Amino acid sequence: MNSTTTKRVAYSGPEFQTIAEQNTVLRGQVGSGLHGVTTGADDRDEMGVCIEPPDYVIGNARFEQYQFRTQPEGVRSGAGDLDLVVYSLRKWARLTAAGNPTVLLLLFLPKHEIVTNTWVGQQLQANPEMFISQQAGHRFIGYLESQRDKMLGLRAQRTNRPELVDVHGFDTKFAYHAVRLGLQGVELLTNGRITLPIPEPDRTWLRELRNGEHSLDEALDRMRDLKDQINRLIGCGAWAKHADPFVINGWLSITYLRWWEEKGLI
C-alpha cells in the first residue's frame, strides 16, 4: 500500500467522521451542479469545514480533513454518488488564503446550495475579502492551465473519459473546467465575489462546450483570453499580493475559542 492510499484511508476513519459530523460549521455543494453546468450522469461533490476539538489543535493529535465517497477508492463516481471532504477550519483557511479556486467557493455558496451553516459560516460568507489577494489570480491561472494541459494530453489524467474523446475529439469536461476557472478568476479579481451558479450567457456557453458544441480551437481561444484578463487584473494592483495572515490568525483564534466554549470543551 502506497503512502497516498494510506493517507486517504486514515482521513476516512470513524474518529475523523465523528469530529467532522459534530463540528461542521459550513457545508455545501461545490461540483458542476453548483456552477449550473451539469448532466444527468454527474455525481455530487460537497465540501465542508469543521472546528476540531482542542486536543487536535493544542495536543499531539491531528485532524486536517475527513473524506467520504459512496464508491470505494479507485472506482469512478457516477450519477447519485456523493464525494465529500470536510476540512479543519485552519487547513481550509490556509488553502483559501493561498487562493485555491475550489475551497474558496464556500465563501460564495447561495443559500439553496448550503447543507449546513452556523454563525462561523455566516461570518466567512460575510467577509470574503479577508482571503482574497493577487495570489488567487495566480492560482486560478495555474488551475486553468492544468485542466487545459490534461485536455491536450500533456499531463497525466486523474480521471479517464475516453468516451468524450471518442465523440468530440477532446475531453470536453477538462475544457469546460478550464474556461469556468478563467471566468470565475476574472470575476473574483474584478468584483471580489463569484456568482453561483455561473450567470448567463456564459452558463449556456459552458454547457454547450461540455456537450461538444464548441470546437477545441474555440475553447483554447477562450482560455487564452481569460488568462490574459486575469494577468491584467493581477497587474492593476487592486488587491494585496497576499492575504493578511495577522487578520486571518486573529479571526481563527477568536473563532476557535468561542466555538470550544459554546461546546463546553474548555
Rank of each mutant, 00 (worst) to 15 (best):
Q157M: 05
P199T: 00
G31N: 12
F16N: 14
V49E: 01
Q29L: 07
R158W: 04
L154A: 09
Q135T: 14
T96S: 10
V167M: 11
N191C: 05
E261H: 14
L189T: 01
T96I: 05
E208Y: 05
L34K: 06
G40S: 09
L154R: 14
G78T: 09
I198G: 02
L107E: 09
D43P: 04
E262M: 12
C236A: 13
N117Q: 08
Q22W: 06
V186K: 12
L220A: 04
F174W: 06
L188S: 04
L26Q: 03
L105P: 00
V30I: 15
T255C: 04
S3K: 02
D83Q: 11
D149H: 06
L104T: 07
F63T: 12
A20P: 00
A136N: 00
S133P: 01
H35K: 08
A41F: 11
Q29C: 09
N231H: 07
R94A: 06
Q135R: 11
K241C: 11
E46L: 11
G185E: 00
L181G: 06
I254R: 10
D149M: 10
R139K: 08
G235L: 07
R62E: 15
L188K: 00
H168Y: 15
W92F: 10
P245F: 12
D45A: 08
M223L: 15
G28F: 06
F68H: 15
L257Q: 07
R258S: 12
Y143T: 02
D43Q: 05
T159A: 05
I230R: 01
F63R: 02
G121F: 10
S77Q: 10
L106G: 10
W260R: 05
P53T: 12
R155Y: 11
R8N: 06
L95M: 13
H138L: 15
A79V: 15
S146R: 13
P54A: 03
L226Y: 05
S146V: 02
R161E: 07
D149S: 11
H242L: 09
R258H: 07
A20D: 01
V25W: 11
R222W: 03
W260S: 03
I248W: 15
A243W: 08
Q67F: 14
L216M: 09
Q29K: 14
L109V: 13
L183N: 03
C236E: 14
W119Q: 07
T204M: 06
